[in-house]
Design a protein around this nucleic acid. Structure first.
Lengths: 353, 353
DNA sequence: GTTAGCACTCACTCTCTTTGAGTGCTAATA
DNA sequence: TATTAGCACTCAAAGAGAGTGAGTGCTAAC
């Protein structure tokens, strides 16, 4: 039913439409070097492709445009398989290699910037699963009268802080006790497990200190909440808003409600995934979202991808995304698993240059 | 030349235009209860006001719209003087009072949110002068093998952090030495004074430790740079982009280049200031920026205001801004001056309830 | 199975007309 | 002298045809 030529024609229509954004006519297709038949034949095939749901006409006397099915088929089978050029490769490598401290977060951030720049699209980075984000350390630092900065660090490399004001000044011992005790008890724990009940137990165990320190515990709880709920971060929002083929209203809404994206992503998808802004979902109409996972030890820690117009240069962009996520995946697994609850004590290290 | 009636008519035109966005006709004005003359008379006055540069016509057979001069006059003299209702007052008070730790930054942030919500405009908050942002504390915290979080806290209450990776593990003593030494030497210093030469001196003085710790000093320098350059922060960007009477392109550009706003603000303006998106400046055309300073000890620490359409409900919005900035100004000066370089030692404090 | 030929469709563009809100001017009025 | 009624005038905006041409589907010939 879908013989070679029809597929070739379909691919040509998609290619052409991606470039021009105009409905594609049989004449245009027939004039291509790799198509050796007349416009009339192309028309017949196009009519067939339309019946099969791959093409549609805005109106009777117009050319054809691809349907979502066409894009899906195109991405899966039809599009030209491109290799990254050495220049592209080195540009992408740079984004990964220049990161000083290769945590998941830092790598993703640097990669996002590069990707946004190279594709002129908006980059989407999701920290899919807070259950894989473990608490590494909790620290309290005095900063002025009765003011304390509470610091929480997670295994993915995120740091959040919060200023707490207490009723009392705390002694050095108290501070040390608190951070030591909390770190010891919480480190290695997934952020999303920090519930009020966990903290209540902690408070009980602290006994005498409790009254004094409870505002700090409250702070810990607030910080943990801040980490929870898969973050979705966008880079280069302007690229989305600036596109004239996307509705600014919808784009704005997407940016505001970006967190809802996590729900649309297959819970622990293990390879590249493409979503379209169709009917019901909240993705901008006429846009596509391409996401690729960042994995470690069989688990999907997060994902990186882009949102762009439906008529996107998939053949160019997809290899970028695949390469970057692969490099990041490598980078975080070749690094030793992040230390958990480590509290370096006063051991003298040799200091060779 | 500008008798009472003409001013009344001008005010009425501005009021009406702000509401409808359509050119205002003589008939509309004449039908208002506080105007007791016929359309013909209004027309005569309007012609006069046009000659004086307060009104203009989009085309011959249209009504009049206000010019920038008209808005200026309106804001200065003409607009109705409104008192805040008790509800409004309490809503604004809440934004200031609910801030747990009343630093300039935290107050401004909370106020921004409230203001954006109440006005449906985009809120602009500027931290005008980094020279008034003093370093309060620098701290290093170990977080995994050879990884350290560097923390910098300023007098305005901002906290920034950076992860550094070293070649060696540091002992507790080394860490303590570093943060103590750096805090001692930098605290009280304006962030913008942290230059490479200052740090070089510090490095020299550290002598033996230097080689080991120099990546940390580099980190300090990076952090200080991050604080520098008067921050302009926007809240509720969507309100700007969503407005149909403003160009999305320009709005986007404004959001991206928001920092340029500091240059347009009078260096140390001491009372409410209104800017319009005119001719050359980069402010969105047809928009107005209203900023009011936040001061302390005769110095302008920052400012808070909004950017909205030219046809803005000034009579409502300006009192909001004035009230909020005044409350913030009070809040930060009634608080004791922020402790500088304080490093609480192990002194036992009494712990009465 | 492919293609040339041809009638047909329909968005787009252009021009022309109509409409009506709003003005400026003039002459009458208080 | 200030105000107003009356009227001619202007011009953007909306609507109505008419013409154009890119593109199609169908049929019949190759």
């Amino acid at each position: 039913m879908l013989d070679e030529r029809k597929l070739k024609i379909l691919a040509a229509v998609v290619d052409e439409y991606i470039v021009t954004g105009e409905p594609v006519s049989s004449k245009t297709i027939a004039s291509m070097h790799n198509i050796k038949v007349s416009p009339a034949t192309v028309r017949n095939d196009m009519a067939m492709l339309e019946q099969l749901g791959y093409l549609e006409q805005p109106h009777t006397s117009a050319g054809r445009i691809p349907t979502y099915s066409a894009y899906r088929l195109y991405i899966e089978k039809l599009m030209p398989q491109r290799q990254l050029t050495p220049e592209e490769k080195s540009r992408l490598d740079r984004a990964v290699d220049e990161v000083e401290v290769p945590t998941e977060d830092a790598l993703t951030e640097s990669a996002s910037k590069a990707l946004a720049e190279l594709t002129n699209c908006t980059v989407v980075a999701s920290n899919a699963s807070p259950q894989f984000s473990l608490i590494t350390k909790v620290e309290v630092i005095p900063t002025g009268r009765r003011m304390y900065v509470l610091l929480m660090i997670t295994s993915s490399g995120s740091i959040k802080n919060k200023v707490c004001r207490l009723e009392f000044d705390l002694s050095d011992e108290q501070l040390k006790f608190f951070s030591g005790y909390v770190t010891e008890n919480l480190s290695g724990m997934p952020v999303e497990h920090i519930s009020d009940s966990v903290l209540d137990k902690l408070a009980e165990a602290m006994g005498a200190y409790m009254v004094t320190l409870s505002p700090l515990l409250k702070g810990v709880s607030d910080l943990a909440k801040g980490f929870r709920g898969g973050d979705v971060h966008l880079e280069g929002e302007r690229n989305l808003l600036a596109r004239k083929d996307l509705s600014p209203d919808e784009a704005l809404r997407f940016i505001e409600e970006k967190d809802r994206l996590t729900m649309l992503l297959d819970d622990s998808f293990s390879s590249l995934q493409v979503l379209f802004g169709e009917d019901g979902n909240f993705i901008v109409s006429n846009s596509s979202v391409i996401m690729s996972p960042i994995r470690r030890g069989g688990k999907t820690l997060g994902s990186l991808g882009i949102i762009g117009p439906l008529r996107l240069n998939y053949a160019k962009v997809i290899p970028y995304i695949e390469y970057l996520t692969q490099r990041i995946t490598e980078a975080i697994s070749e690094d030793e698993p992040p230390a958990v609850g480590m509290m370096p004590d006063a051991e003298d290290n040799d200091e060779k240059k």
